[in-house]
Design a protein around this nucleic acid. Sequence first.
DNA 1: GTCTATAAAGAGATAGAC
DNA 2: GTCTATCTCTTTATAGAC
Lengths: 223, 223
Amino acid sequence: MESDNEKVSTKERLLVAAEKLFAEKGFQEVSLRDITKEANANVASVNYYFSSKDVLADEVITRHISPVNDARLEALETLKKKYGDAAFPLREILQAFMKPMVEQMHSSGLRSDLFGKVMGRCMADRGKKMPVQVEPQMKAVLGAFISELIKALPNLDAETVLWRLHFSFGVVAHTLLFSDRIADFTEMPLEGMGMDASLERVVDYCCGGLLAEVSAEQQGGEQ
Amino acid sequence: MESDNEKVSTKERLLVAAEKLFAEKGFQEVSLRDITKEANANVASVNYYFSSKDVLADEVITRHISPVNDARLEALETLKKKYGDAAFPLREILQAFMKPMVEQMHSSGLRSDLFGKVMGRCMADRGKKMPVQVEPQMKAVLGAFISELIKALPNLDAETVLWRLHFSFGVVAHTLLFSDRIADFTEMPLEGMGMDASLERVVDYCCGGLLAEVSAEQQGGEQ
DNA sequence: GTCTATAAAGAGATAGAC
DNA sequence: GTCTATCTCTTTATAGAC
């Protein structure tokens, strides 16, 4: 496992080692010594290539999340070509949002259950800071999806749509972070547990959630 | 703010200070010095009363989550008295699960947006370890709710119910953790943003998600 | 019970030889 | 680019005076 490390650059090995360890243990729990040992590199190499542990984490996050966000916007463009200015089917909007994440999970060399943890833990551990490159990206993506969701859900007011997108985000985040642990809380034997098998389940659930009726207590005058 | 600290015991002040700081910054990020300073206590006091930082965190988590779990089981008992062996209305099951959490949020002295973070962060930061007292509790609670959900959702197979409960957990967890940040990703002006205002929203959404149709790809022979 | 002082270990980062 | 050695800082935890 360590033997084919010689062909790839030290910088690359550090990134791979860091994302693996961050995913497994979290950002704070992993020391530069852990990372450089895992990468078969010298203790000083992180500072040589990245100048600090924090910048390393930024790069780890960015190089996973950026392609996902790009693919999301592309998927939305594809829907635009297919449906023009009409509202897109809700299910396809959700898939445009989620499928890129699952695909990135596969193209990254990580075990699929580690992918979500890289981002989740790096970000949670380091408090609010998202890499500066990523924040405007996320804003653009969420803005684009909110617009389409509002069009696809004409019976809901914009604030409710925003909340429900937020909830859907929670579903995905939680699933990415804990899909390997769902079995811990039950005696039931479970079959396909990967994020892979659960994508359709997630989409089903979120469709239902987004389309749900608004209960009496919430209804204002606007819808 | 520091002035009425003298009447409560040092141990209590340490717990309060710890939960506040853990919520704000996470478990790893907060040192014993931070905690004892916030609590107006001596640096050595945490080790005197709790013997380690880790045990302190266990107590912080346990004393919030235990009453919530107790109240959840009680709420389920109340439904049992009301409906006997018949299936409970889905909405009431969800409220039995979520309302105790919101109420605990209020009875804890914490700002409401901090409550969820205490548990979320302490647990995420420290890896998989949940306090030993809490794990069987959680198993009992989830088991009880799964049974009722299966009865309330006769069209769904048990595995799908389990997944969807898991998703609903994700909605709540994410909402607790980030309901104060939802506004960061939009230009929309938002009104009631607390966990309070959003409880009905969460219940609506989760009802919809749990009741959602199962898409073609997921359907096995069993339902 | 509360304090000071300090032990012991570990962290991130850097200087300078090679 | 890579290494060793080390600096500086902070952490948790403890020992012992009061």
